[in-house]
Design a protein around this nucleic acid. Structure first.
Lengths: 111, 111
DNA sequence: TGTATTATATAGATAATCTACATATATAGG
DNA sequence: CCTATATATGTAGATTATCTATATAATACA
């Protein structure tokens, strides 16, 4: 799989996961891998810096939650700003897919 | 439009155009822009180096064609190798889109 | 004649991913 | 008990694909 295809949509996927429920980083990696049949095997070195960027931007907020004696995990929550950003990104994604499909279908229906 | 989304699919789009007919660089830029309603406004500085890379790889072949006194244009033709590469890329693209859609649809149908 | 469009090209900047490394806790097996 | 693996987060440096900016030159039009 050409990793370059992933470029630009990773943030959208993470925001989407957080729209459903709060998650910690490692959980996002696993969830993405499961849902995509390992098309997305996001690396830790990609995820954590990206989470920090999203937090700086105000799209997500972090909080620590330790469940009974175990080491606390760093959970993330989607903010209202992040919710707006997600909608933008989803719209861009739809537009992008539509455009690619139109090229792939070729000139048959246009020329 | 987030340009990062484009990443990785540009080569596929160019190979696809050449599957339909031989084209020169500038023509590819215009054709992509038209078909995508300017979702893809590929820059010359992106296109020409990419064409050279595809040529080195053996995916495409160039030939000059001057039509009656005018300056000759550098046309490109898809090679059998490039045809195979295009099929690979299209398959990857389908897989990628499917995976993203599955994440966007959320846990409703999986969890 | 000069300006915009067509056409190709290169150099350097930016951005997003990767690999590799670093750290620490929890769990399972020998 | 010790060790290896899985869990969990993090940073540094390399790679890659895009962009902007610049350069060149021919054609079309005013």
């Amino acid at each position: 799989m050409d990793k370059a295809l992933l470029s630009g949509s990773t943030a959208m996927l993470l925001l989407k996961l957080l729209e459903e429920q709060d998650m910690y980083g490692y959980q996002m990696i696993e969830t993405l891998a499961q849902r995509s049949d390992h098309t997305f095997d996001l690396k830790a070195g990609t995820l954590y810096p990206l989470l920090h960027t999203l937090e700086e931007r105000g799209d997500i907020e972090a909080y620590l939650e330790g469940q009974g004696g175990t080491r606390p995990r760093r959970y993330y929550r989607l903010t209202p700003v992040g919710r707006g950003r997600l909608q933008e990104k989803e719209q861009e994604w739809r537009q992008y897919v539509t455009a690619v499909e139109r090229v792939l279908k070729g000139g048959e229906c246009l020329a």
